[in-house]
Computed example of a mutant assay.
Amino acid sequence: MISRKAFDAYSRASRALVDSATSRVERSLRLWIGMHPDATAAEARQYSIELIDGMAQAYSGSASTLAARFYDEQAAASGMELEDAVTEISYDAQWSSEKMHWAAGLYGKGNAEGFVNAAAGVMANSVRRSLNDTIMVNAKRDKEAGVRFARVPTGHETCAFCFMLATRGAVYHTRANAGEMGQYHLHCDCKIVPGFGGDHKFDELVEGWRPKEALARLSEIERETGCKVNGKNWKANETVTESMLLRDEGWLYYGKTPKIEYADDSVRVKKSQNRTEREQHALECRTAEKLNRLGFKTVFQNDEIINDAGKVVGLPDLANGIEIKTVYAATSENSISRHISRACHKRGVSAIVIDVSENPNLTDGKARGFVESSLRRHGKSSAYLLKHDGALELIKVSK
């Protein structure tokens, strides 16, 4: 097993290399744009391609060297005697050119910063691919010695598809497995890591990352969203990713149950300044505790601010955009509709949670119907229903 200390050190070194490469691309492009204010999109595209081509080989070479050294160190730590790891530079000039052809469209529309960011993303992807492909190439070479590989998320840019692949654990290098495990989206920072000797499919190759337990958490999110993650249905993957982003990283990656937090002390004080606030917040906290058990991050923020025009603007209850609606006594659709209407008038709401878990007047089925009709009435596409058994269900409707 790779120690958490060793994995984190490798991740930091990898990130530093990526940051160095992207910073150089960004600085060079911004300097060129400043010196060529009248440049066409075609000229900007050509310069960016030449710039990335020139830098990617060197940085990808450094990345593959770093990965090969990591592979050798972990092989030695496991007691296996293998040949020195080879390097694999995975820069794809054609892919890079295609991405920058698209990005040049941003430049042509006056979005120079978007163009620069896209170029940095292409550069970062090239460096990361060389890291991961080097591990995979060596694992394939040493498969007869029992070497496997696994994908491990780092918690920075992990989508649902990445996470699903990571839950597969240590796999052999079949053509299908290697093909899927080698797929990465732009900004993907998952790591491919080697497993030596007696490692089996769901073994803990990296300390703290337990694929089988992570698979159970992913399965729970799939159940509540009604979406199955795979390599073809990207709309379903996006829905699961959105739900993942509402979760606490400690729960999602390591199964640690989060706790209620506050953005700052002023929020805590405001929530207890009078009887009405205290009673309302007590209900919110009961719902938040249920969400904690399901892995949701619950950081209460100030849900009202004053804008530049001096008007009060409503914000969601939680810092991740969740608006909590605790419905413990309502009996009618109108009550549900009012809650959703109020949420619609708040700025920055990413999800609405309707909690009927302690409501004796509404069955889950009746509450589901009320939520569906209320969403249609107010032009919203989805809301979560927290049911009587403590489970969550994402209710989706067509606008």
Score class of each variant (00 low, 15 high):
Ala13Asp: 10
Ala330Gln: 10
Gly110Ala: 01
Pro316Asn: 12
Tyr71Arg: 03
Asn307Glu: 01
Gly310Gln: 08
Ile89Gly: 02
Gly390Leu: 13
His388Ile: 06
Leu246Trp: 00
Ala176Leu: 13
Ser23Phe: 07
Val122Phe: 05
Cys188Trp: 03
Asp92Trp: 06
Ala214Thr: 10
Thr65Cys: 07
Arg30Ile: 01
Thr154Ile: 06
Ile395Ser: 11
Asn274Ile: 01
Glu238Val: 12
Asp364Arg: 00
Leu283Gln: 14
Val193Asn: 06
Leu218Lys: 08
Arg347Gly: 05
Lys140Val: 15
Ala178Asp: 15
Asp189His: 05
Trp234Gly: 00
Val397Arg: 06
Ser398Phe: 13
Val299Asp: 01
Arg69His: 08
Glu144Ile: 14
Val353Phe: 09
Lys396Met: 08
Met1Leu: 12
Ala68Glu: 09
Met244Ile: 11
Asn111Leu: 10
Ser62Cys: 03
Asp189Ile: 03
Asp264Lys: 08
Val147Phe: 09
Met244Asn: 07
Ser266Asn: 12
Ala67His: 07
Tyr253Pro: 04
Ser97Glu: 14
Asn334Val: 14
Trp32Phe: 13
Glu323Cys: 08
Val25Phe: 01
Val313Cys: 04
Asn237Ile: 07
Ser373Gly: 09
Glu372Lys: 14
Asp8Ala: 11
Ser90Val: 02
Asp264Trp: 07
Ala160Val: 02
Met1Arg: 10
Gly379Tyr: 07
Ile336Lys: 13
Tyr172Thr: 15
His36Asp: 02
Lys99Val: 02
Ala236Glu: 14
Val269Phe: 08
Glu50Ser: 00
Gly295His: 09
Lys201Ser: 07
Gly198Val: 10
Lys366Asn: 01
Lys259Leu: 05
Lys143Glu: 15
